[in-house]
Design a protein around this nucleic acid. Structure first.
Length: 588
RNA sequence: GCGCCCGUAGCUCAGUUGGAUAGAGCACCUGACUUCUAAUCAGGUGGUCGCAGGUUCGAAUCCUGCCGGGCGUGCCA
């Protein structure tokens, strides 16, 4: 018996009862869950029916409850105030859910909500002059998490990375290396490529104060690059290559994947023709100084300080393009190349205004797909001392943090392994999985739009509302299931009617809700919803674990039923963690 | 000035899109390992849901106005 059939059975029964009692079917029926499991497994709110049938909702509940007879799955229906609480036979409830979860396998929790929809998720999008930092990690895990959610709900997802590989910033690194680098390379200095290039960027900043003419040299180099000077291009390609090698390592550690890479060196000239179209259509205008601008509607953008209408520059007065010029072109290219229905940009909230403009401009150009563009904005990651500032050296480096989490987890594991039974390899494997789980969960557990105050102590915690806590609940389930395999219960059939204590009911409810949570999370583009529900499941598993023995339960049919419940719970935890990009461990 | 975001327990956050008595984690106090892993569990302490109105049978949730904080605000990205 599928859980969806149970739900349908309830809805059908209520519809029939309404037909019987009031002569018409209800217009809307919402199936929910009672606040306490003792009250029932499902509930139907009678408030909407009150309007339709012009009666007090409590009376309606009473009347309907009286008309519903127990059926295949429905054990009883009770009217409690305006609520219709439905109790399902434990046999059907537990048996149905556990069987269904096993059958679904990898597809557990997946839905076809987004079937046929093509979505691009652009995320990370780093500059190539510096290594990645904590903010990039938030972006990366959010981008991956959202992509996973969209895939689980049936969307076709294209994960894209728009690399900012050109401009003054990279020229600064190039110039510094050229002047003082002595032909050093990441290999000769044993430095990770992106850090190597980043070091030259820092060196540039240091020398800038002493050499005021450096800036002019940088501009000169940028001009050479733009004119296609072979030597400059060669240097540029070499240094970017080092950066990509470095980024690649970090992506792999964090489990970040991309289906498409865009490079600004190839896109920065896009968009100019769109601007011309816009001018012809009259969407844009040429300002007195020669720049092409767009006037932004006051009702959406407000006014300037002096009260006048806001404007956005689309082409500089010298005719060259600005950032938003190429963004317009790239946006169109994405839709043209991939036949997208939606295009999501995972970019920090400091660019809220930029994307509001971008999408409005696309709309002004008459692209109907502009409605499919969405800026998934996320808050900054601040430190206890305040904002991360590269000048003050307070930026938390991504690779350093990954290493630190790994070491902390390794110390913890060794501390628990007093007998020294674990091989170094095993310790490292677990430490990596646990360390990454801690940092990813910490960054994903709050809504994207919230600013995170990065508390180092809390972020490295393995207790409470954390990734390792959830991994631990899984490992416990896995341990029970392993032991069960060594014993011989297989000949006995599970008797699900023996289940039904409070912890079991709470557990089964959390498992039932999982697919709904996945859909909500996908709809809201919020992996935090998965974190919250995952934690509830893990917490409930731990409570059940302490209160009720599985392998030492009273009789084999009960043991088998509880094993099935544990198996189903483990599967849900594993899938939820996978959606967050977090590994599970069979042993911790 | 204007636009967007945030405001719930000492701290960090949930709150099923308007429904049953507002929930967790951390911190603090007390208890539970010869029993499937104590990275765990049980109990206790802790609330004018920023303030004031409004809509509704019903508001932390929707509307209006304030207060406080953050990010932005035409030729940077």
């Amino acid at each position: 018996m599928l859980i969806s059939s149970i739900k349908n059975e309830i809805l059908t029964a209520v519809e029939a009862a309404c037909q019987n009692q009031f002569g018409q079917k209800p217009e809307t029926l919402k199936l929910g869950y009672p606040p306490q499991v003792e009250l029932g497994d499902f509930t139907v709110e009678c408030f909407p029916l009150a309007k339709q049938f012009r009666q007090n909702p409590a009376q309606i509940a009473q009347a309907i409850a009286a008309k519903i007879e127990p059926s295949k799955s429905i054990q009883s229906v009770a009217a409690v105030g305006p609520y219709l609480n439905v109790k399902i036979y434990n046999r059907a409830l537990f048996g149905g859910v556990c069987d269904e979860i096993v059958q679904q396998g990898e597809r557990l929790g997946n839905t076809d909500m987004g079937r046929g929809q093509r979505v691009m998720v652009e995320y990370l999008s780093p500059n190539t002059n510096k290594p990645l930092h904590l903010g990039h990690i938030r972006n990366g895990v959010l981008g991956m998490g959202v992509s996973n959610l969209l895939e689980a709900t049936g969307h076709t997802v294209i994960k894209a990375n728009l690399v900012n590989d050109r401009g003054v910033h990279i020229c600064k690194s190039m110039l510094a290396w050229q002047k003082w680098g002595d032909d050093g390379t990441p290999e000769t200095t044993d430095t990770k490529g992106d850090h190597f290039v980043g070091d030259w960027y820092v060196r540039y900043a240091q020398e800038e104060d002493k050499h005021p003419d450096l800036e002019q040299e940088t501009q000169g180099m940028l001009l050479k690059w733009e004119s296609g000077d072979p030597e400059t291009l060669k240097l540029w390609e070499m240094m970017n290559g080092w950066v990509y090698d470095g980024f690649g390592e970090t992506y792999q550690k964090l489990g970040l994947e991309f289906d498409a890479f865009y490079y600004e060196s190839q896109t920065y000239n896009l968009g100019k023709d769109l601007i011309q179209d816009g001018l012809q259509k009259g969407a844009f205008v040429v300002a007195e100084d020669g720049a092409v601008i767009a006037k932004l509607p006051v009702d959406e953008f407000g006014t300037q300080r002096d009260g006048s209408q806001k404007v956005e520059t689309l082409l500089r007065s010298d005719g060259t393009s600005v950032y938003i010029t190429q963004d317009l072109g790239t946006a169109k290219m994405k839709f043209d190349e991939h036949q997208l229905d939606r295009s999501i940009y995972v970019v920090g909230s400091e660019q809220n205004y930029h994307f509001q403009c971008l999408f409005k401009l696309l709309d002004m150009l008459g692209f109907e797909w502009a409605l499919g563009c969405y800026h998934l904005s996320y808050g900054m990651v601040n430190l206890p001392e305040g904002k991360m500032k590269s000048r003050e050296g307070t930026v938390i480096d991504a690779d350093d943090l990954i290493e630190e989490m790994f070491q902390l987890a390794a110390d913890e594991i060794r501390g628990r392994d007093s007998e020294g039974e674990l091989s170094d390899e095993e310790v490292q494997k677990r430490a990596f999985a646990i360390g990454m789980a801690a940092i990813k969960f910490y960054l994903l557990r709050v809504r994207p739009e919230l600013t995170i105050n990065f508390d180092p102590k809390e972020s490295i915690s393995f207790d409470g509302f954390t990734g390792p806590y959830c991994q631990y609940a899984y490992a416990r389930c896995a341990s029970i299931l392993r032991r069960a395999q060594m014993q011989d219960f297989a000949s006995v059939e599970a008797d699900f009617s023996l289940l039904g204590n409070e912890e079991e009911l709470q557990l089964i409810r959390a498992l039932i809700q999982f697919p709904e949570v996945v859909e909500e999370a996908a709809r809201d583009l919020s992996p935090a919803r998965i974190c919250n529900h995952l934690f509830t499941v893990a917490q409930t598993v731990n409570q059940f674990y302490h209160k009720h023995p599985v392998l030492a339960a009273e009789n084999p049919p009960l043991i088998q039923a509880r094993l099935a419940l544990i198996n189903a719970s483990a599967a849900v935890i594993k899938k939820a963690l996978a959606l967050l990009g977090i590994e599970t461990l069979e042993e911790m």
